[in-house]
Design a protein around this nucleic acid. Sequence first.
RNA 1: GCUCCCAUCGUCUAGUGGCCUAGGACACCACCCUCUCAAGGUGGCGGCACGGGUUCGAAUCCCGUUGGGAGUGCCA
Length: 467
Amino acid sequence: MSDSPRYRFAPSPTGFFHVGGARTALYNWALTLRTGGTFVLRIEDTDESRNSPEWTQGIIDALSWLGIDSSHPQFEGPYFQSQNADLHVKAAHRLFEQGNAYWCDLTGEQIQERAKASGKQGYDGYSRDRGLGPGPGHVLRFRVPEGTTVVNDLVRGRVEFANDTIEDFVLLRGNGTPMFLLANVVDDIEMNITTVVRAEEHLPNTPKQQLIWDALGVTPPVWAHVPVLVNEQRKKLSKRRDKVALEQYKSEGILPDAMVNYLMTLGWAPAGDTEIVPWQHIVDEFKLEDVNHSPAFFDIKKLNAFNGDYIRAMSFDAFINACQPFFSDAPWPTQRFDADVFKKMAPLLQTRVVTLSEVPAMVDFMFLENAVIDEDAWAKTMASDFAADVLRDFAASVETCEWNHDSLKALLEAWTESRELKLGKTQAPIRVAITGRTVGPPLFESIEVLGRDETVRRLHSALSRLG
RNA sequence: GCUCCCAUCGUCUAGUGGCCUAGGACACCACCCUCUCAAGGUGGCGGCACGGGUUCGAAUCCCGUUGGGAGUGCCA
């Protein structure tokens, strides 16, 4: 066995992939690549109610979207915790035989009653010396020794826990199945994990797990507890309150590179004056020792800013390709879509969208039979005293003019000057007539792409609507 | 309640005793550019939680206070 580090990512299948989990996975992956180590994926499906096979594929797909490819030579797994149940139980019995664990027949209610009576919280070690054996409803508890447990954490430093603040926790449930704390440790030992990088919420579990490692006679791994991601209320991101599903960001048109880059800047920053850096740069620089100690706010606004940057940096072809998935539920009839028209419009859109999902709404007027007129936009722009004139005159000259955006613009400029108006004003009614809105891609380019006949038709249509 | 963690602009961060009258990014504001909206450019606003030490010198080290957070399951 080589001594290159073995990292692991151990999500429980919960039906969707959490951005916090994504960051933890990314930290592990960056380290794996940086150190030439191994990334082990283990699905923690110990709790049978959470065991849902189709979710495993969801995890693999999400990781792959992030660039963590399960066919990469440094990727190992997925393993399933449930398949190691025998090992977990075996270890539990060994712990019992060694005197590190004991059986207890107290129910949850009885424990609560005792706690209430004594005024102390939690389990009081009642069955420690009762010499119980296994039996229906009996749980196996770890016998926490006296003393102090010191956790050496790469992010936090040295953290000390007095053992008398750690209660005798459950290893095996009353039905004989293993608990997370045990299963997690046994699997880590089995898989030769050397470095455990996980969220800070696991820090209070760590002394318990380290005690299990010790009792099993194996040197504990290197721990690293990274700060949690929080919402604007500074609470841990939760599935109920917050937008945390990676899939949702994907479907809204966040680019994986942008997500990865942004996630990596939460709790850490690349050297230099820019946070937008290529993945390889991150791999070269990322160190656990540099990770911040405090919770980081997951700021969607900043994510969007990163995304806009990444979109603008895309090549023409890459942008076109990336847009494709977002046409499936676009507002126009699919048969009216014209890929060539879209290609002409694409460069005009690329600097104007922050997420890919905004693309369809920005070109819909090209593919819709008629532009959907926004009533507010109509009211605002058609009220001017020159609206009817500019529509009529522009329609007339457009019928015969040279067909490119420069001459179209020159035409309207001339008209505008003759009336001593501003182009910013006079283009508005035309824009609404053509696109239905007051904002959108550059007007004259859009008209050029739309074509003469359709332009004239829409202009006349607006005119007749004006009455 | 108890255990543990944390504390630099609104937010994410740089900063590891002098290079800091604290740097960058997002957001915000102004101006420039401009056919709308963006993009881009320039400039601006804004922070070391507080109080004690240690030191010639502290955002950086120590203690306390305050304020946040996580955990506290026969969940993971």
